[in-house]
Design a protein around this nucleic acid. Structure first.
Lengths: 326, 326
DNA sequence: GTGCTTGACGAAATCGATTTCTTGCACTTT
DNA sequence: AAAGTGCAAGAAATCGATTTCGTCAAGCAC
């Protein structure tokens, strides 16, 4: 790899001039040409590491998601990436497994690597943003919020929960249960509050045990559904607060031999590649990609020096019925 | 962020000594203690950028995949990540969209960022590994190979194609078509050669048009399947050479109103979250995660200075029937 | 013609670590 | 006791860019 010094020597100018040529400073036409020719000839690309050390910043943004195998988050990642590319930024994608320790580790890496900013979907309320915050690097929370004062982009989770539950009520179901995520995660709490509001307002039957907490994955949804089906008076429909748990729930229904057409299922999120789409499944489409794109835009604005007050952007989910066929 | 100089000053030693403490060189017990105490007190973490500039290398490995929304590649990514973590390396995940230009761009970034090595699933035969190769950084090709002399981990694609097709023959299907990926991509060519070998050997009926080339995505599979169904004498079964195209094919069947139980479908890859699993679907399980893990191991060995001759590891796919229920 | 501004551009400092070179001291060896 | 050996640890060079500072000359006003 050629360095700026070699280019300077070949072009017969000082290294400073070479740097200026590539950073848009005042250099005479003549020398510009000399430098560009020399650079071309040597195949020179500026060493990013040296530049970063000097400038104390890079053009990389760090994206922390809890589960990269969840299509919701890959879609979100695409959104971030698309937007970042437009501004010449690269994205580093990291997987936290909802583990605060891993999360912390990546945040420290982000700090010590001089990354320009962080977009994260926090694993818990106790995220420690101290390291990056103290460096003044902007952070945007996505999908979930944090107690730290940072910008956020989220979904109107309560409205989504209401929409999903209402759709089931209107389809004629009267014993609607809810499979929520782990207790204490805001995102899922809001969704189940939406459910609660509707079942209360509509006075549908709610039994003890109709609210199940589960982990966010397929197995969580499955066991929660099994538990629901074993109740003395089981529900006739269920709202699941994320996509993977819905898959688990549908699996449980299938394994129990229940025709999914007879059992209402509403999902907050999209079921990937589901086919044939059971007509009784209601999906509330979460704008994952858009969420990512918006978060990236906000982050890039902050990186560009924007100092306006903190913002929380709330995106509205839209109901999709029958489910998407891709 | 505290620097090595501040730590040195607080501990009353030279910066060199501080560096030695953190790099396992000979320092007296006494000074070690002083330095560690000072570092602790200041919350010192070495600046990775400065270290990288000096050492001309980092502990980051770059993973280039064509499509991060394809579950096959996310599983592969997890494998890489798991292995990398064990050795204290971080993984940067990049999406090429099978676009040689994007690929090249990321390869240059990998080079100019001093990343320790690259694992890639090349977008085309014309990958230009010049930049990283000339820096002596190791590269491992995964899933697909390249003309460049690099280590590779792949799947025995022809055997997988044979297994898939044979399973259909044994299930009694006699007019077996094939939906292959874009012509010219080795990985898919081998798979369709497996199909060809079996249909020839078993003398099943093959018509013009039974071999369809499509892009690797859901829409490609769907239109290929539609084309097959419009043939004067359509097939009674199909082998698709990747997972997403199979989804598309199943969608097309569904839309045409054909009962999937009556039509044989064999997939090279796993169908994510499919339910209920139609019993006539054969899946050849590709060890994606293991592929990633193996690639990472090989790369890490090279990074560690291993100079043994080039290796190509071929992993065997296993047939799964009935399909996985997650 | 003198003094002042302005712009191009080279010299040198800087970012924060690692590493080589050197020094100084303690301890053998003959 | 002089010379040789070994080792801890400081001084200084180094990685490759950016940026500050200063110089010099041209352009302009008086």
């Amino acid at each position: 790899m050629a360095t700026i010094y070699e280019v300077a020597a070949l072009a017969g100018v000082s290294p400073a001039t070479v740097s200026r040529v590539f950073n848009g400073n005042t250099v005479s036409e003549e020398k510009q040409r000399l430098v560009r020719d020399a650079a071309q000839q040597l195949g020179f690309t500026p060493n990013k590491t040296a530049r970063r050390l000097r400038k104390q910043s890079s053009e990389i943004i760090c994206l922390l998601v809890p589960d990269i195998e969840n299509p919701f988050f890959t879609a979100l990642a695409r959104g971030v990436e698309d937007r970042a590319q437009e501004s010449g930024f690269s994205v580093v994608l990291c997987n936290t497994d909802d583990d605060p320790a891993k999360e912390l580790r990546y945040l420290q890496i982000a700090a010590s690597e001089q990354m320009a900013g962080v977009i994260l979907s926090p694993a818990s309320d106790e995220v420690d943003l101290g390291a990056i915050a103290s460096l003044g690097r902007p952070v945007v929370a996505v999908d979930r919020t944090t107690p730290y004062p940072v910008d956020a982009v989220k979904i109107d989770n309560r409205a989504a929960g209401i929409a999903a539950t209402t759709a089931l009520v209107e389809a004629g179901f009267r014993r609607i249960a809810c499979i929520a995520g782990p207790a204490g995660i805001e995102e899922t709490e809001d969704r189940y509050l939406g459910w609660k509001q509707v079942v209360t307002a509509r006075k549908t039957l709610v039994r003890d045990g109709f609210l199940q907490h589960a982990n966010f994955r397929v197995d969580g949804g499955r066991s929660a559904m099994k538990a629901l089906l074993e109740l003395v008076q089981p529900p006739d429909a269920v709202v699941t607060t994320n996509n993977l748990m819905a898959i688990g729930a549908l699996q449980a229904l299938h394994e129990t031999g229940i025709d999914p057409e007879d059992f209402g299922v509403a999902v907050l999120g999209e079921l990937p590649y589901l086919l044939p789409p059971p007509s009784s499944v209601v999906q509330v489409r979460l704008p994952a990609r858009h969420l990512g794109r918006t978060a990236a835009s906000m982050l890039l604005e902050r990186i560009g020096g924007d100092t306006q007050p903190l913002r929380t952007v709330v995106l509205r989910a839209e109901i999709a019925r029958p489910p998407l066929s891709l």
